[in-house]
Amino acid sequence: MNLSKQVIGKRLKITSITNEEVTTRLSELGMFEGAIIKKLNQAPFSGPTLIQYNEFKLALRFDEASQISTEIYE
């Protein structure tokens, strides 16, 4: 399920990223496919998604978050 639609508060595993630009930008932050992230918040009306990776918290815009496929990581 794409990141913008995922439930808040769950740990997620990035399964694939469809956009090359997004892939590059996230890889610079150390987030590659397979990385475990946590979704912290979702702004209403297709707003940004707030995630946490390691100690780093960041928000991604809806368009970009929609291109990141994730699955719930138990």
Binding site: V22, R25, L29, P48, L50, F56, K57, L58, A59, L60, R61, D63, E64
Partner: peptide, 8 residues
């Protein structure tokens, strides 16, 4: 930019 860092 689409990455907004969220400081503590």
């Amino acid at each position: 930019f689409f990455i907004i860092p969220m400081p503590d």
